[in-house]
């Protein structure tokens, strides 16, 4: 990992500094929607690069490279955001007149909010910012992430990176009965292509821990090592058992923390932060 990104490993949060070089200049911003890719994890992952039909993401030399957008080519079509397993891509549009712009956010929970619904916009660290209106919902399915567009004041477009639904008196989570059976099962582990139905099926068959589900479905065995699916599986297990999340162990984390080639390991693992 590049030295200047090492703090992300510790804190998990990108700063304005880290975004330098990942945002278009002011005049390009006014031309139309663009993709902001907040991907700092050097893992073997490249769906964004191969999915872009405009060659707007700079080609990788190595599959572990980080993606950078060529804003002169990016149309903001959101194809990359639909396939990024890390939910690291956001589509920002500030080309319209007036105070407000839109940000399109990947969203992996069900049920999806509806157009016109008020939701709570949140920052990178999850803290509440302000209520915002949903202006567009793209359903997920077929291995694609659902995307939800919020209307947000232009000056906050680089702050909003998540949202949560605002609950009225309804229960803390929506039970599975409320799911639309025709809805295509959302993908839980993108590395290995495991969807929610498969996870629920395993839980229904009596598997009781993250590790068992991992062994059986491969969810969490991919290059990202369960960074996104583990939490979803834990939620499902807790819901099934009717207990709080804290009662579940998170499953075993297996070293190495990030993939490393055997050539490097054979030489005694000598690869320092500078030249990696």
């Amino acid at each position: 990992m590049k030295k200047d990104l090492l703090h992300i490993k510790r804190e998990g949060l990108a700063t304005a500094d880290d975004l330098r070089g990942r945002l278009p200049d002011e005049s390009t911003k006014k031309e139309g929607p663009y993709a902001v890719i907040e991907c700092f994890e050097e893992i073997p992952c490249n769906p964004c690069v191969v999915s872009c039909r405009f060659d707007a993401i700079l080609p990788f030399e190595d599959i572990n490279d980080l993606p950078y957008v060529d804003f002169s080519k990016c149309t903001g079509c959101a194809v990359c955001a639909r396939v990024c397993p890390g939910l690291a891509i956001f589509i920002v549009d500030e080309s319209m007149q007036g105070e407000m712009g839109t940000i399109m956010l990947p969203y992996e929970y069900l049920p999806l909010p509806e157009k016109g619904e008020q939701v709570m916009a949140r920052s990178r660290d999850g803290s509440e910012l302000f209520p915002a209106t949903v202006v567009r919902v793209l359903k997920g399915g077929k291995g694609k992430t659902a995307l939800v567009s919020l209307e947000v004041p232009k000056e906050s477009l680089q702050e909003v990176r998540a949202f949560s639904v605002i609950e009225d008196e309804s229960p803390a989570f929506h039970s599975s009965e409320t799911y639309d059976p025709d809805y295509e099962s959302p993908v839980v582990c993108r590395c290995e292509g495991v969807d929610l139905n498969e996870i629920r099926d395993l839980i229904a068959r009596g598997y009781k821990s993250v590790d068992e589900i991992k062994h059986r479905s491969r969810a969490g065995m991919g290059p990202c090592q369960g960074r996104s699916c583990r939490q979803i599986i834990l939620n499902e297990l807790a819901r099934d058992a009717g207990v709080s999340l804290d009662e579940f162990e998170g499953g075993s984390f297996r070293p190495p923390a990030s993939p490393i080639s055997m050539d490097i390991l054979a030489k005694g693992g000598e690869e320092d932060a500078e030249n990696s």
């Binding site: 090592q225 080639s261 055997m262 050539d263």
Partner: peptide, 11 residues
């Protein structure tokens, strides 16, 4: 030739 392959997990 396998040297380029990355190790993802050990146990």
């Amino acid at each position: 030739r396998l040297g380029q392959l990355k190790v993802v997990r050990q146990w």
